[in-house]
């Protein structure tokens, strides 16, 4: 079910500004890959190019290739909508739909894509909420608004919403940065479970988090202000945190940065 991602020579722009340059990497199925690096180095931009969300920003465009099991996401005739059904995304700030109940939030992706049978929806909603470790907390109030949950619960609701459409890959853009340590722990545990079924890519500013949850870690950096961000190195998380091959990575991880 999970799929592999192969990126080669990817460069992304905002209008005439080059945000990231010439990035190549391979992300294996059923692994967690963490992106670390200083603010503004293009981690989030790169993440958003992986499911064609980058082009939603006015002026955003991409050069290079992103292969999802040998199929180029940026090939001619590829519909960004079907790409996003394969590659789901969880955002930095929890963003449940404010007009919808908890149930409707999870069912949103399916319903908006044309599934309407009540019994099927109920099954998927329960399965997704269980998958996001939220079922026990909300099973008695599925018809209450999703915005009434706590921040951590809202973020797990967003994860449930993302996995309800059964994507092959799940992208997470700093999913814990707005959450307290307990909710963060809940989500990190969840990531460990989800990687059995999905390929997961997570952007994080929290080095310990990268070390805890990921199998592989990619370090991004930029040469200077106004320069595009680059991939410095990607390697097994253990190696990155114990014996990285590039000095800049070690400086960043050990806090001797800049």
């Amino acid at each position: 079910m999970a799929k592999r991602i192969d990126v080669s020579g990817l460069t992304a722009y905002y209008g005439s500004h080059k945000a990231i340059e010439d990035i190549s990497m391979t992300i294996e199925p059923r692994t967690v890959t963490a992106f670390i690096g200083p603010s503004g180095c293009g981690k989030s931009t790169f993440l958003r190019t992986l499911n064609r969300m980058h082009e939603v920003t006015p002026g955003g465009r991409v050069e290079g290739k992103v292969l999802l099991d040998d199929e180029d996401l940026y090939g001619a005739g590829v519909d960004p909508v079907s790409v996003r059904r394969e590659i789901g995304m969880v955002f930095q700030r929890p963003n449940p739909f404010p007009t919808m109940s908890i149930f409707d939030n999870v069912a949103a992706g399916l319903r908006l894509n044309g599934m309407h049978k009540k019994s099927e929806l109920q099954d998927v909603v329960e399965k997704s909420l269980r998958g996001a470790n939220l079922w026990n907390e909300v099973k008695d109030r599925l018809n209450k608004p999703g915005a009434g949950l706590s921040g951590g619960q809202q973020q797990r609701l967003c994860i449930a919403r993302a996995i309800a459409v059964e994507p092959k890959v799940l992208l997470m853009d700093e999913p814990c940065s707005a959450l307290d340590p307990i909710s963060t722990l809940a989500i990190e545990d969840l990531i460990g479970e989800l990687k059995e079924r999905f390929t997961i890519v997570i952007v994080t500013h929290n080095m310990q988090q990268a070390a805890r949850v990921s199998d592989r870690t990619a370090f991004f950096n930029l040469a200077g202000v106004g320069q595009p961000g680059r991939l410095v190195e990607i390697d097994d998380t253990e190696r990155i945190f114990s014996n990285p091959s590039v000095q800049a990575t070690e400086d960043y991880i050990s806090g001797r940065f800049g």
Partner: peptide, 9 residues
């Protein structure tokens, strides 16, 4: 909007 687009809507 992004949340919805990212669901493949």
């Amino acid at each position: 909007r992004e949340a919805s687009l990212a669901l493949g809507v």
